[in-house]
Design a protein around this nucleic acid. Structure first.
Lengths: 184, 184
DNA sequence: CGGTTTATAGAACGATCGTGCTAGGAACGA
DNA sequence: TCGTTCCTAGCACGATCGTTCTATAAACCG
């Protein structure tokens, strides 16, 4: 059993596992391929993470930390939207977006793990983006605005990542961003 | 080999397979569970569909027909958006939406089949929704509007289906629909 | 030094996967 | 009636999956 674990070694393996997930997605995230990519045996992974579901949960937690760090640093709702879109101009950063959207696909069939993750992440977004709209904004309408902006950007990004066709969404995305109140 | 097939029998099995996919998603869509649910043997499915990937492709084709029939019947862009949202008030219809969004998740890791499907479906949407905006509209801006409305609705629906929390998106969705030009 | 704890690895078990091989009936034209 | 074509089924193969059992080094502490 994988009871006693050194947390430092575990953190090392976790970082490498997250990188593997970003590159390969959740589809082939089984013990053996991950272990081979990390240069360890499956037993080592089991020892440090326990169950495959626990490893998934741990990876998702790490992913949430990353996302929160990026969203929380945005000074305004419009800035957050622009940042997300601009980041897609570098195809090397697509992998991380891709992994994130893969969670949405999984949440449709494994709610207890992936939908729970989304629940937390979207709540985090909401809080950060409502705060970014300033303390004088009406909370209800601020939430409504944030929800709509998130949904629109998410829809555009999803189309872009799923089809790989940037041309299709570029005009619409720029029109949407240009129409956003710059400081809201 | 599954070469010669009676197309009527094949169509029967296909309809049942599509229903199974709507209920269970693509995750457990392997020969044996489908065959068991349909009351036939795996050999029968192989005989009629050839390869598992070919069965998936056939199911996706059927799904595209369904979607086109619904979108193509919409008189306007705003009506299409409203129809999609209203349909989510009945949780029994969530399964079909769910299956559709599962395609987006799969497209991130299996482009040759699922992304190709999305490419066609979104193009179909675009044509139908640009037509629905009337012949006097500027084609470029009509495309831009359709892309944005599709993206926003898709983002809202995805949030709703992935988290199951209708309350979170309801206000934003209704605000968005109310702000849409009614006849555009 | 000896003993306990931790990290790592190899092997194997049962389950499920896609697929191929073999073969039994049913329908139907010659 | 015989032969061909089509539908259906059972079985087995190799591969991969998550997990468990067993064993070997290394580190740490008395």
């Amino acid at each position: 059993m994988g009871r006693p674990v050194n947390h430092q070694r575990r953190a090392e393996l976790l970082d490498q596992a997250v990188e593997y997930a970003i590159e390969h997605g959740f589809a082939d995230l089984s013990w053996r391929p991950v272990a081979a990519a990390l240069g360890v045996s499956t037993t080592t992974l089991v020892h440090h993470f326990g169950t495959k579901e626990q490893m998934l949960e741990t990876i998702l937690g790490r992913l949430r930390e990353r996302t929160n760090a990026q969203v929380g640093a945005q000074p305004s709702l419009a800035a957050a939207a622009r940042t997300a879109w601009v980041r897609t101009s570098d195809p090397r950063q697509w992998a991380e977006f891709r992994l994130f959207f893969a969670v949405y696909g999984r949440a449709l069939q494994e709610p207890r793990l992936f939908a729970e993750f989304l629940d937390r992440v979207v709540t985090d977004w909401m809080n950060a983006l409502v705060d970014a709209q300033g303390p004088d904004a009406d909370p209800a309408s601020a939430r409504r605005r944030a929800t709509l902006v998130i949904a629109t950007i998410r829809g555009l990004l999803l189309d872009l990542l799923a089809t790989g066709d940037r041309e299709r969404v570029q005009d619409a995305a720029e029109a949407f961003l240009a129409a956003l109140p710059p400081d809201a």
